[in-house]
């Protein structure tokens, strides 16, 4: 860890919920609005210490993934968002995960206010839901059916157009 006493260190330390420390470049951290806000606040106070940001909601496995995404996107930050290479990378990145990981990643992206990652995850989930039957969706996401048969029939009747 760097030990300079200047407040404009180029790195910050992020702590996961399971107490692992991650040294992160500021430019990478700034991809998350939550981290950026923390850094800005600390710098305004004029602290001389290394900035430590604890994230009580994100495990280190998920944080690793979020930071991998931020690192890639920080490289492209000045480039246009429609970069084909980046889009391809995004897709390959998400494709690797099972639904549970994808879910935790979405949750972390929301908590850390990493808007582009959150949008990406939501689009990915929506794309995988599309064209599936209700039964299939329940199975994939382990959703418990809490309707009575009568309620179920009512919903189908109310939105008949969607179920024919």
């Amino acid at each position: 860890m760097a030990s300079s006493s200047s407040s404009s260190l180029s790195r910050v330390v992020v702590k996961s919920s399971d107490n692992n420390l991650f040294v992160v470049n500021k430019k990478v951290a700034s991809q998350s609005q939550l981290l950026k806000q923390c850094i800005d606040n600390m710098e305004e106070k004029g602290t001389n210490d290394v900035i430590l940001i604890p994230l009580s909601n994100v495990t280190s496995n998920i944080l690793t993934l979020v930071l991998e995404y931020c690192e890639k996107h920080a490289d492209f930050a000045d480039d246009d968002n429609n970069n084909q290479e980046l889009k391809q990378w995004d897709h390959e990145f998400l494709k690797k995960f099972d639904y549970a990981t994808l879910n935790s990643l979405t949750m972390a992206a929301d908590y850390m206010v990493t808007k582009s990652l959150l949008n990406l995850c939501c689009q990915f989930i929506a794309d995988s839901i599309k064209d599936l039957t209700v039964q299939q969706i329940r199975q994939i996401f382990d959703i418990k059916n809490d309707f009575t048969p009568q309620e179920e029939a009512d919903i189908k009747n109310e939105n008949a157009w969607a179920f024919r």
Binding site: Y99, N103, M107, K144
Partner: peptide, 10 residues
């Protein structure tokens, strides 16, 4: 990572 029951519902 995952101990949840309903994956996306939460």
């Amino acid at each position: 990572l995952e101990a949840q029951q309903d994956i996306i519902s939460d």
